[in-house]
Computed example of a mutant assay.
Amino acid sequence: MSKSENTKQFIVEKTAFVFNIKGYAGTSMNDIMNVTGLSKGCIYGNFANKDEIALAAFDYNHNKVNEHMKRRISATDYSIERLLVYPNTYRNYFRYSYLQAGCPILNTSTEADDTHPRLKERAVKALDFWKASIENQIKRGIVRKEIKDDTDPAEIAVVMISMIEGAFMHAKVTNRTKELKIAMEFLEKLIIGLKA
């Protein structure tokens, strides 16, 4: 990587957590300068505006979650265990630094739904990707005769995502994990119930 690419990557990595905690509107240029230790000129020498940094930070946060899930899912071959990675991860979100500030999709969706069309578009793509990933795991399980053949992949994917995001939001707002754990235990039962 060139020096410019390294600097851009540094800015994104340092600001990703701040954007996930404070959101786009709540993150100021002073926050960006403080967390990176760089001048405004240096930052604007690498990014045209705060929008570009926010979009790159969202992509970075989303990719961190994606890579974690991909590694954990790939570590097992059995379809039910692959689906169980989701409740197991989100039940223990506090173990993962990139989830401690909240789910980047949920945080971005909540803030950007009416105020920032480009961030909203990124969140929509991330949700669509997540839904398709779960659907593909279910379809794979049906083909392998590990999941009941009358299972509707889209239906299960929507329910899983909704339960995870709703329970995650509940935990972040209340600063309690009790309800999150209840929801993830219920989701586990739902997934185990798909077994062929």
Rank of each mutant, 00 (worst) to 15 (best):
188 E>T: 15
92 N>Y: 07
52 E>Q: 11
163 M>V: 11
4 S>D: 05
103 C>D: 12
80 I>A: 02
44 Y>S: 02
141 G>N: 06
118 R>S: 08
145 K>C: 04
118 R>F: 09
195 K>W: 15
38 L>H: 08
62 H>K: 02
196 A>I: 07
77 D>Q: 13
42 C>A: 10
53 I>S: 01
145 K>F: 04
194 L>T: 14
29 M>K: 02
184 M>R: 08
74 S>T: 02
163 M>K: 03
155 E>S: 06
62 H>A: 03
22 K>N: 14
155 E>D: 06
126 A>C: 07
49 N>V: 04
105 I>P: 03
1 M>V: 12
131 K>N: 14
51 D>Q: 11
6 N>E: 15
90 Y>I: 06
38 L>A: 00
72 R>D: 11
31 D>W: 08
105 I>V: 15
40 K>A: 02
188 E>Q: 10
67 E>S: 04
61 N>M: 07
84 L>M: 11
132 A>I: 01
57 A>C: 15
49 N>T: 05
89 T>K: 02
89 T>V: 14
54 A>E: 05
158 V>H: 07
167 A>S: 15
160 M>N: 03
125 K>Q: 09
159 V>L: 11
124 V>T: 04
168 F>A: 00
72 R>C: 07
135 E>W: 08
81 E>G: 12
139 K>L: 09
92 N>E: 12
154 A>W: 02
147 I>P: 04
160 M>A: 08
183 A>G: 05
148 K>R: 15
17 F>Y: 14
121 E>T: 01
81 E>Y: 13
61 N>E: 10
80 I>T: 03
104 P>E: 00
29 M>Q: 08
28 S>W: 09
18 V>N: 03
135 E>V: 02
101 A>Y: 12
55 L>M: 14
167 A>R: 10
110 T>V: 08
168 F>S: 00
90 Y>P: 01
123 A>C: 01
173 V>P: 02
74 S>H: 09
